[in-house]
Nucleic acid binder design. Structure first.
Lengths: 216, 216
DNA sequence: TTGACATTATACTGAGCAGTATGCAACGAA
DNA sequence: TTCGTTGCATACTGCTCAGTATAATGTCAA
């Protein structure tokens, strides 16, 4: 019927066409649920209704799978926040837009972002191959760069008198931690309409930005 | 020389007199460093220069050890914050004192509090004996109660017009998460004099309380 | 001195798991 | 049709680890 070949399936449809992404989703679910060490590769495979062979066909090790999963989450954040920071306005307004995008992106694909936070740093001490080590370093560098985007905008806001001055690193880290709240306490319960989610995001952004001492 | 028996060794001296506490400290270090699942009981024992036998003499399982470790941290928080909330003054002043105590207590025994946060909830899904389950439930209940103390004071502050109103649960969770920042990014580097620590605590408390919209 | 109990080490067992080897089916190209 | 290649499943291996059994040592009381 449809010419399946002509339409490169770029985005997420009902069934993920790329096996890689299906694996990543299963991995995100399991890793975020039980942690890296407590999750077995067999478990991830079973969660998709497949077996280990499939995973090791696409990923070289459990560690690589973990890093790829976290990386996937970070990709989404970078995309969305980069888009959001293009809005015109004061540093404060841009920071608000970025924060909003950050929270909404996180909530949309919560498992990935839980994995990303789950101590990419802590979880994989030692016991990593050089290959994994390299991937991990790249991921950490990108994470720092992501944080740097926020820091730059905050600095601008401080210089423009929108925010009160202070230790920029501490300010940034505290802001982002507040924004990450959903990763810690959010659980998809009954209702949770898109409006609810937006409300939660509004609240988080509001309290986090208030913490910067905006427009007082 | 000294009559060792007459002086019940209540507090932490150079060498912890209670084997339980020595074990808890080693466990806190290891668990916070590599996570629950990735830490073996042998590792904890080696970290003290002892062997597994010692640990299993005092704790019935690895899970119980983990819960006891987290519990120990929570005990300290409850003690200190209860003391701090006795200060006279507005709700805002009491909350500030409590927050300060919270942060300083955390930094003083960081490994314990990292364990406490390390997803007491997430880390131990399934695979727990009924005994462990019961201990875990008690711990979680106490954790909720601890959060409740903060919520009560915040509510009071809102009623007195010190803080802007909003979803009390979200406000409380965001406040505490901000205060917990040190558990995520603090690393004991070179200097770190008591003054530095106090400065960090001041900053965290300041930004977190500002987020409540105090005295605007 | 003896016996009961507390404390710790050592040795062992069984289970779970990461990673590998191999086989097999489907598919496209020659 | 045949052959190579991709995409998986199945079976196996070696290791790590929680928990246990046992023994050795110390301590205190009678």
């Amino acid at each position: 019927m449809q010419d399946a070949k002509s339409v490169q399936p770029t985005e997420i449809d009902m069934a993920p066409p790329q096996p890689e992404e299906a694996i990543l989703r299963a991995a995100a679910f399991c890793f975020s649920d039980r942690g890296f060490s407590a999750t077995s590769v067999d478990e991830v495979a079973r969660h998709m209704g497949y077996t280990k062979g499939r995973i090791y066909h696409y990923f070289r090790s459990k560690g690589e799978l973990f890093i790829a999963t976290a990386s996937f989450g970070l990709d989404r954040l970078v995309e969305e926040v980069h888009a959001a920071m293009q809005v015109e306005g004061t540093a404060q307004q841009r920071l608000a837009a970025m924060s909003h995008a950050h929270v909404l992106t996180q909530i949309r694909d919560l498992p990935f972002h839980r994995v990303l936070l789950q101590g990419v740093t802590m979880v994989m001490r030692g016991s990593t191959t050089p290959d994994e080590r390299e991937l991990l370093d790249k991921l950490l560098a990108r994470q720092r760069a992501y944080e740097g985007i926020f820091r730059a905008v905050i600095r601008e806001g401080v210089e423009q008198g929108d925010f009160r001055p202070g230790n920029l690193t501490l300010i940034t880290k505290t802001l982002l931690l507040s924004l990450n709240g959903a990763c810690f306490w959010y659980s998809e319960r009954e209702d949770q309409s898109p409006e609810d989610l937006s409300m939660i995001a509004d609240h988080l952004v509001g309290q986090a930005l208030f913490g910067l001492g905006e427009r007082c």
